[in-house]
Design a protein around this nucleic acid. Structure first.
Lengths: 133, 133
DNA sequence: TGAAACTACTTGTACATGCAACCACTCTCA
DNA sequence: TGAGAGTGGTTGCATGTACAAGTAGTTTCA
């Protein structure tokens, strides 16, 4: 348990070190990636996809909105819901961030060992599926 | 990366669910365990052992001290340093927490699969060693 | 159709976490 | 031996994270 958390802290700091020049945090990159794959999504859908509480995602989006990277609009189909989408600035930043992200990934793989990383990825995937019914 | 963090969140919430009746958070239990194995340690030693920034540990200890679970005294050998030790109340709480902790561990193992958990533990151990010179 | 139940998100509150800057003590070396 | 470098912790600041409670819009059903 402690080890899972320590691993998370260590790997996070590795990625953030790489992203720091862009002023991006790991959690924000995480959200950007989630939006990037689908273009525009409801907050709850995103939260579910990245296994984050909606309230936490809401806070992360506050910062990202303040930075002008994303915008949220009321879903015309359900006025309770919010659609989250990237701004042009957000897309530009994301494009800059991706190579740095991959660099960090390479560093992480090098440290963990490529095969171990695969094993771990499979494990982690399974952990995510716990949430699925 | 996102998966490591998601795993950490998921597993943390599993443990915290179990510890909630005692008012203990995962990070606090983490610190207690570290102290329990050695009795009394410097803050920096503990921080190093659990791969946490000293500043973060300092904050966790603030809460634990406020709750009366630990106390910190000036190290007579080096007045810059602080020795952290458990109080009686802390030890009592720790004793109560351990069984709950193990319950959570069992649940986590059940979800991950026992063998996978071993593999993961080995992986995570390696990640900790990254910090060692 | 209108109130109750439900759903989507936000906000209050508390704690977690890291980095940079800072304070206090210790060590080194001219 | 005294100033400067080094070390151990704490604090300021920003963000992440979760749970509980609150708000607003939607659905259900008598």
């Amino acid at each position: 348990m402690a080890r899972v958390r320590a691993l998370s802290r260590t790997v996070t700091s590795l990625y953030e070190e790489e992203l720091r020049p862009l002023g991006l945090k790991a959690s924000q990159m995480n959200v950007m990636t989630a939006i990037a794959v689908s273009g525009e999504e409801r907050l709850s859908t995103l939260a579910d996809r990245i296994a984050l509480e909606p309230s936490s995602l809401s806070r992360v989006l506050d910062v990202m909105r303040r930075n002008g990277w994303v915008e949220t609009v009321i879903d015309p189909d359900d006025e309770r819901a919010r659609l989250v989408r990237m701004t042009d600035a957000g897309n530009a930043l994301y494009a800059e961030a991706c190579p740095l992200w991959r660099t960090a990934q390479t560093r992480a793989r090098k440290l963990l060992g490529r095969e171990d990383a695969e094993v771990f990825a499979a494990l982690a995937n399974r952990s995510l599926s716990w949430r699925a019914p």
